[in-house]
Design a protein around this nucleic acid. Structure first.
Lengths: 323, 323
DNA sequence: TTTGAATTATAAGTTTTCCTAATGGTGTTT
DNA sequence: AAACACCATTAGGAAAACTTATAATTCAAA
C-alpha cells in the first residue's frame, strides 16, 4: 500500500472530487481513479459512493477517512521530527526566483532571514519561470519562486500571493494624461507585450478577449525588463506585473493607468521537490515568506453553503479579475 | 513512500537484522537494503548504524521506530475495522490443505466451526503442499494448511504447530518387536520414503546424515498414503508424520518404533494471500485453528540476554530435534 | 594477522507497478 | 434532450521495485 494513495483518498474526501484531488497531487485523474479502486479492492469495501454528484463517502469511507487524517498527521509529525535531526540551520540555501520577484521581494526577505538565521548562506539565482522550475527539479535550488505555480509529480506548489498586473505607458503616450480609462478606450491600440507562449500573456489575451478589446502587440519579449525599455523607447504601452514597474512608476519614467474592468492578477507561488522535503532552512525561509507554515495547498471545504463562486472556477488558481 | 517499507524497517528494528526481516517479509535481502537506503535518503537521516554487529538503531532510528509501531498499529486496526464492514460471516469459505492435515485435523475443525458459524459453508480441497500453495496464490482457496510454511511476496505464512515424525514399520519387520532403538540399529536398513525433492525428505536425510545413519530408500513416493501401503506390502519401514499413521498405529497395522536421538518434527502452518486479507470467516477459522488471532509471525525479541540458542538458528522455522 | 563465516552494499537486468493519454459512460444542468 | 462535468476503463509506456550475482564489511577464530 502506497502512502500516497492514502493521502489521495483523504484529499478526495476533503474536496469531494477525484479530479481536484488529482490536480493537487500532480497526477492524472485516471491515476487517482485507479488508486482508489485498488484501495477499495484491498480493503474489500466500497469507500466512495459514485452514484451521486458530488460524490459522497460511504460509512466505511467516512470511518476510514477520519482515522487516516489522524494517522497521516501523526506520521508527518514523526517524519518531520526524525528528519529534522539531520537538518541543521547552517550551510547554503540555494533559491531560484523569477526576475520580478527577485527584484521586488527577495532583497528584503534575505535581509530579514539573515537576521533570524545568520548561519545560513542564502544563494539566489534568477531566471525565467521555466528555468526556475528546472532548477528545482534538478535539485540546484531547494525552493523556487514562480508565477502560475502548479504541482506536478516532481513538484509541490504552494500559493503565495496574487500580484496585480498594471497597465502602464510612456509619459509621452496618449493614455499618459488619463488616470482612469475604459476598456473601449484601449481598442485597437499598439502595445508591447510578452511572448504569446508565456502563461501571463495568455491570461492577458483571454481577459482582453472577454472584454472585447483588441490590442495589437507588435513587439513581444520573453522578459519584463525588455518590455519596460521598449515601452520607454517606443513611447508605447503594455501590461506588466506591479513589482516590475514600481520604481519606474515612482520616479515618473512610466505612468500607471487604471482600468478597473481589466484588473488582473497573476498568482505567485513557492515550489519545492516532492521527493525529498526541503531542509530546515528552506522550510523556514518559505514559511517566513508565506507568513504561515510551508505546506501544500489545501482548499478549505465550503462550509455547508452551496453558492457558487462568482469567478470561473476553472481559473481559480490561475488568474482572477479583481472587481 | 511504501507502507511496506515502514513495516520492513520496524521488522529490522525488532530483529536487528536486514536478512531476517527480509525473510519474514518474503523478499530478498537486497530489496530490504535498498528500501532502507531509500527511506533514509528521503528522511535525510541515518536510521541504522551498520558499523556494528548486530546492527543498532541511531537515535533518530529509535525515535522513528517507536513512532512507527504506534502508527502502523493504528493503521492496521483501522483497516481491519473498515474492511470488516464488507465481510459477512456467511457464504463459502474455500480452504486448501495437505492430505495429512485434511485427514487428521480438518474434520474436527470443520465441525467446531460449523457450530460457531452455521452460515459459513466451509469447502475443503486436499492436495500436495505445492498444490495448496498454488491454490492460495490463485485465489481458489482463502486459507492454506501446509507443511514447512514460508512467507513469500504473494503469501503470508503463520506457524501453527510442529508435528512429530515417527519411525514406523510393518508388524513383520525386524524392528517391530523393539520399542526403542538406537540410531546405529538403523544403519544400512532399507526403507520406503518420500521423493528426495520434497522438503520433508530433505529434512529427514539431513538428520540421518548428522547421526551417521545410512538408510537405503529404495522406494520413493510423493505422498504419505502410498508410503504407508508400501510399508505394509513390502514389510518395510519408514519415517512418517504422526497424523498419517495414527489410525494404523492404533489398530496394529503399523508399529511405531521410538528412536530418541532421531526425533524430528515438521512445522505446519497456515498461509493466505498477502494482497487481500482473508475474509472475516477465513480469519475466524484460522484463529480457531491457531488458538490465537491469525496474524503474521513475529519473533519475540530476546530480552537482554545474549545467549545463543542451542539449536542451529538457520533451521529454526524449518525443523527441530526434540531432545 | 589471516582466514572464514555471516552479513550488508552494490550492480545489472528483469518484473511489476504505476501513470498517462485517449475514450466511453453516467449523473447534472440548462 | 443536449451539453457539460465528472469518473471508469483500456492499452501502452515510464518508473519503481525486486532478484540474482557479486563485492565489501564486520566479527571471530585460527
Amino acid at each position: 500500500m502506497q502512502l500516497r494513495t492514502l493521502e489521495i483518498f483523504c484529499e478526495i474526501a476533503r474536496r469531494r472530487s477525484f479530479s481536484k484531488a488529482a490536480e493537487t497531487h500532480g497526477v492524472s485523474q485516471s491515476a487517482v481513479s485507479q488508486a482508489v479502486h485498488q484501495l477499495e479492492q484491498q480493503l474489500g469495501v466500497q469507500l466512495i459512493d459514485r452514484s451521486t454528484r458530488p460524490l459522497s463517502l460511504t460509512s466505511a469511507g467516512d470511518t476510514f477517512h477520519s482515522g487516516l487524517v489522524e494517522i497521516l498527521g501523526r506520521y508527518h509529525r514523526l517524519a518531520e521530527e526524525v528528519s529534522s535531526a539531520g537538518r541543521e540551520m547552517t550551510g547554503q540555501l540555494p533559491i531560484a526566483a523569477i526576475y520580478s520577484i527577485g527584484l521586488s521581494y527577495m532583497p528584503d526577505a534575505k535581509e530579514e532571514f539573515a537576521r533570524l538565521y545568520p548561519d545560513v548562506d542564502v544563494r539566489t539565482h534568477y531566471g525565467s519561470n521555466e528555468v526556475v522550475i528546472k532548477d528545482v527539479i534538478a535539485g540546484h535550488a531547494e525552493l523556487g519562486l514562480v508565477s502560475f505555480p502548479r504541482s506536478s509529480k516532481e513538484i509541490v506548489a504552494v500559493a503565495w500571493q496574487k500580484e496585480p498586473i498594471r497597465l502602464v505607458c510612456s509619459p509621452a503616450h496618449t493614455l499618459a494624461d488619463k488616470t482612469e480609462v475604459k476598456p473601449k478606450d484601449l481598442d485597437g491600440l499598439e502595445m508591447v507585450g510578452f511572448e504569446s507562449s508565456l502563461e501571463l500573456r495568455q491570461m492577458i489575451d483571454s481577459v482582453l478577449r472577454r472584454s472585447g478589446v483588441r490590442i495589437d502587440f507588435q513587439n513581444e519579449f520573453d522578459n519584463a525588463d525588455s518590455i519596460v525599455r521598449a515601452i520607454q523607447v517606443n513611447e508605447s504601452a503594455g501590461f506588466l506585473p506591479e513589482a516590475v514597474i514600481r520604481r519606474e512608476a515612482a520616479n515618473g519614467a512610466l505612468r500607471v493607468v487604471a482600468c478597473r474592468a481589466l484588473s488582473m492578477t497573476r498568482p505567485l507561488g513557492i515550489i519545492f521537490r516532492r521527493s525529498d522535503r526541503p531542509s530546515r532552512a528552506g522550510y523556514e525561509f518559505g514559511s517566513m515568506l508565506l507568513g504561515r507554515p510551508l505546506e501544500p495547498d489545501r482548499e478549505k471545504r465550503s462550509s455547508g453553503s452551496h453558492r457558487k463562486a462568482a469567478t470561473n472556477p476553472s481559473l481559480d488558481n490561475q488568474t482572477s479579475i479583481v472587481a
